[in-house]
Design a binder for these strands. Structure first.
Lengths: 124, 124
DNA sequence: GTTTCATGTAACTTATGTAGTTACGATTCG
DNA sequence: CGAATCGTAACTACATAAGTTACATGAAAC
């Protein structure tokens, strides 16, 4: 599928698609071909790719919007708050990473297919 | 303590302090007095205020930086992803909220005091 | 009562990060 | 050759949070 087509599906811009897909290519998950009949192609079996791997391929973006701004603050109040919460943030992150590693793209594809079939049935 | 002094401690601006402290005042956690010898005062026993209450007073800002952008998306792919992850995000959030409700400002104050004493000992 | 010290708050400015856009070079196929 | 496509740099737009300015309001000091 071309960047243009993907951008249309995702309601965004082809260059944005290329930027993100480029990271997935670096991780070996997709390949790209230039020129006529080029575009993006999935390079691996969907059952072998987990959300954990995608998260990693995309640069491990932060899970949390709040919490630790500074790992080793000088401020003693900040230190006390970090000490009280760090363990829990680490546990919560582990929970999410664990779940991410359990979900493969094949799982999502299967669920999508189910939903799509349902959608078509309802649509009639 | 005045907004000016607090702003200095927090390395920020008095108006920013007033904005945030105003929310804490609405929640009954602090009071403010105008005029000479005015400023902010803690209104309750620190042992009765938990981080959960602060989080609530400050408008329950989002815990997560990623995840669900749309609770009920039309897109079937997005639906499949949400279905796969929602439970886990809810669990992770519950974990954080639970921990927040376990920690009182008195706990943090005590830990701060310990750190401060240590700091002064080291300082000599 | 005037002066000084505070908060309360509206309005504006600045900073930051993400996304979107334009432009064009490089590559591939027909 | 020419059309299609990615690669990428550079720029623009937008949203959000934080910072700033300005001034009104209120309270205590003297």
């Amino acid at each position: 599928m071309t960047s243009d087509k993907l951008a249309e599906c995702l309601r965004t811009n082809p260059v944005v698609v290329r930027r993100t897909m480029g990271l997935l290519r670096e991780a070996g998950i997709v390949t790209s071909d230039r020129g006529h009949a080029g575009g993006w192609r999935i390079a691996v079996d969907l059952s072998t790719v987990t959300l954990r791997q995608l998260h990693s391929a995309l640069g491990e973006p932060a899970f949390f919007a709040i919490g630790n701004r500074n790992e080793t603050p000088e401020c003693l109040v900040e230190q006390a708050v970090n000490a009280a919460l760090d363990d829990t943030f680490i546990k919560a992150e582990a929970l999410l990473l664990e779940r991410f590693s359990e979900i493969s793209l094949a799982d999502l594809a299967a669920d999508f297919s189910r939903r799509y079939a349902e959608h078509r049935k309802q649509g009639r």
